[in-house]
Design a protein around this nucleic acid. Sequence first.
DNA 1: AGCCATCTTGCGTGACCCGCATCTTTGCGT
DNA 2: ACGCAAAGATGCGGGTCACGCAAGATGGCT
Lengths: 200, 200
Amino acid sequence: MGVVGLREQKKLATRQALAWAALRLAVQRGLDNVHVEDIAAAAGVSPRTYNNYFASKQEAICSITVDRAELIGDALLARPAGEPLVEALAAAMLTFYQPPAELDREWVAATQLVMRSPALRGEALKAVEATERRLAQAIAQRCGLDVERDLYPLVVAAVVSGAARAGIHHWQQSGTTAEFGDVLASAIRMGLGGIGGERA
Amino acid sequence: MGVVGLREQKKLATRQALAWAALRLAVQRGLDNVHVEDIAAAAGVSPRTYNNYFASKQEAICSITVDRAELIGDALLARPAGEPLVEALAAAMLTFYQPPAELDREWVAATQLVMRSPALRGEALKAVEATERRLAQAIAQRCGLDVERDLYPLVVAAVVSGAARAGIHHWQQSGTTAEFGDVLASAIRMGLGGIGGERA
DNA sequence: AGCCATCTTGCGTGACCCGCATCTTTGCGT
DNA sequence: ACGCAAAGATGCGGGTCACGCAAGATGGCT
């Protein structure tokens, strides 16, 4: 029982296979040129099985981000306890949004796809919301607050998340030459610093 | 040409009729107990026409909020120029989120419906995003900045919007006895005040 | 009045989501 | 090692939906 059952391993494996297949195909061909049948085939399961895992193509694709949401809480909690909250948050967000170097191209393409296609943006925003929830929980834990009773963690999580989103949007919209990480950090500090802050 | 053509009036009318019909029916029966046919019938058009206006039931329902997004920019720009930005934003958000007194009950029910149903939350978040965009634009205008080039308006808009969302969530989650407007204002000030602020 | 652009509508198609019944695989106790 | 119960995978079928297309109706302009 200590080991995770083979059953769940397989289940998780197919789940991720489906998710990645959906993402890859969608990036290649565009969302509505890829059918459920294709995704299922790429993952080696029947179309019906696909629907046991995901209720829609969008959900399949965005489940990757949703699963990654766990990571951001861990990233925050891994920061040294003495570090100022702002810095800890900036660092955590950076590790979360900075794509792994090997996947760089693909990841950017995926992000663009997900954010441009109206059909995907809704689900993508749900993923952002999930990330926010996890973040709020981690913030509460770090500050010794209760995410159910206290408003503070929710607000901070929403602020950080929103600022980051603004930074990302701004980075990939205005053809800035600045480094992605710098823009992101700048946006987060701007958001957390309050309104009187610098207006870079 | 000065007057809006009868044609466009009618078009707008049916559009809103469809949107409100969709919302009302969804609140009454639950989203998946209401079919496109019902919505179209309630608005007095054919089902096919319904699809000329909206690509999905969710879009129909949330279009109300999207249309309302225009309002929030106007609300901000209507604030006196001397007022501190924080206060102006708080006031604008309040007028936006505070439901019209007559619609109180229905509006709360609608909000709950939209936020609970997974099928609607995605589209609802897109509406929030639209509101943010409008807000950013208004902020830029008020501060004499360029929403395309400057990061500041985007961040502030995202922060305010996020803080407000957190406040709303917190208000309707933890059975606070506090007034809605107070919680909202508190959340917004907390968000805009920066991290060092009070932790009410 | 008459014409054109635009909107509405009906029909048909393809895709999708999911309930249900069945078959296969896995985990576990003996 | 063996067999049984639980859980997952699959096939089938139904209900819904989004949308292209072409024809009909309506507003607006001269």
